[in-house]
Structure formats: structure tokens, C-alpha cells
Design a protein around this nucleic acid. Structure first.
Lengths: 107, 107
DNA sequence: TTTCATACCTAGATACTCTAGGTATAGAGC
DNA sequence: GCTCTATACCTAGAGTATCTAGGTATGAAA
């Protein structure tokens, strides 16, 4: 039984970071790992496609940056993305509450 | 952005019901719907394969029952399944805590 | 100059849910 | 008796998301 609680949620998680600060892909991977205390240690092959998906859907926008000498694509959340985040957050609250009910977690 | 928080978790959810009582597939679908207050309204095409998966892995065992006139396959959780449930529950606690951190949910 | 961390990317494998069918019986209503 | 609905099971294939496993390239450190 392989647990993959992440499925379908990564987009919302990325917006969760970007809602507070713009960041580039590699940075997002690290921030996600830090914020989750190591639980989300996602491969680049997962995160980059997700970012492209989010940009295509209009939730984030990107621009190339070279000020650090190294080329980076900086992602910024859009108003659309903020709305999507709020909606995703609500869906998560509802969902996690229900899982807690079924699994018998008191809180 | 399609939310599918369920992915990979259904097995643990089913064990969450079966840990308390044996049940047949159709019944599990209803119990899941009740317990989650409508949030988990899963199609049969999702649940039956998941049950077969769980049986194959040894987490549950089944037996045919006809006492109701209608044929039903009753599923029962095994000791292995109870262990898998505990492990899945722990994984969920860890995971949901981390999601809450990233999404900025206070609790 | 070699190695490692940074920084980006994609194709294909894998694995799950879901759609869309199928079969069959019990019971209710006419 | 007949029709309809709910019950109860099933599977093949579509769709989609993550992950594996590669690839390229640069800056900094050893």
C-alpha cells in the first residue's frame, strides 16, 4: 500500500508558498521541504511540471532573472492564483476533516 | 486545478471503516459517504478495485454471504490490515500536519 | 580542474481514480 | 405478472498526477 497523499495537492501547496513570496522552482522545492519539516521532499520532475501547469492555468506568472549570475525563472502568484489558493485551502479543510472522521482522529 | 486529495489514500480510508466492522463493498461506499458527511461519494469503479488490491496485499479477507438472499462479499480486516491502518493513520497525521503548515492553517 | 550544489527541463513508467459500460437479484408499485 | 428502482457485484480503458531517470549548464569550492 503505497501512500501518496500528495496526489492532486501539489498545486495548492506551491501556491501556499508563493502566496507569501515569489520564488524560483528550485527554491520552492527547498522552502516546501523546510516548511514541512522534511515531509515534502519533492523531486524536480514533480515540481517543474506542476509550475508549468499553474502558469498555463493563469495562477502564477514567471519572469527570467539573472541578477544572481545564474539564470532563474521567478514565479509570482496572480490574483487568480490567490483565489485558487483560497479555494484549494477550503477544499483541503473539508477533505482533511472528513479523513479525520473516517480514520477516527479526535480533533 | 482539479483537486483529488484522495489519491493513494482510499485504501487507508477503507481500512478505517473495516477496522470497526466487517462490511461488503456496496455498504462500504455508503458508510464512507455517511461518515464523511457526503464528502466521499465514491464510484463503485473506484472502490471495488481498491478492495481487491487490499485483499491481494493481505490487509483484508473476504467471504461470500447469501443470508440476505442477495449475494454479497463480506470484507474483514486482518491483523496485517490493522497494522497497515495504524501505519497509514500515522502517515496521514504527519502529512496533514505538514499541509496545514504550508497552507497556513493555525491548528 | 574536478566535484558538488544550484537551476532548469522533459519523456516515459507507474499507479491511482474515474467513466462507462456490463450482469444479476430483491422488492415495490401497478 | 410486469416494470422499475435499489442493491450488489465486476472490469476495461481513459484520464491524470507523481515519480524515475535521464539530460544540460553554471558558479563556487576544494
Amino acid at each position: 500500500m503505497k501512500e501518496n497523499w500528495n496526489a492532486g495537492n501539489l498545486d495548492t501547496l506551491l501556491l501556499g508558498i508563493l502566496r507569501q513570496q515569489s520564488a524560483h522552482g528550485y527554491e520552492l522545492i527547498q522552502k516546501l521541504k523546510e516548511t514541512s519539516e522534511g515531509v515534502f521532499d519533492l523531486p524536480e520532475g514533480t515540481v517543474y511540471p506542476s509550475l508549468h501547469r499553474l502558469e498555463k492555468s493563469g495562477a502564477i506568472s514567471s519572469s527570467w532573472d539573472s541578477t544572481s549570475g545564474r539564470r532563474r525563472r521567478i514565479y509570482e502568484i496572480t490574483p487568480n492564483g490567490r483565489a485558487a489558493f483560497q479555494s484549494g485551502k477550503k477544499a483541503w479543510a473539508k477533505y482533511s476533516y472528513s479523513v479525520n472522521m473516517v480514520l477516527g482522529m479526535s480533533s
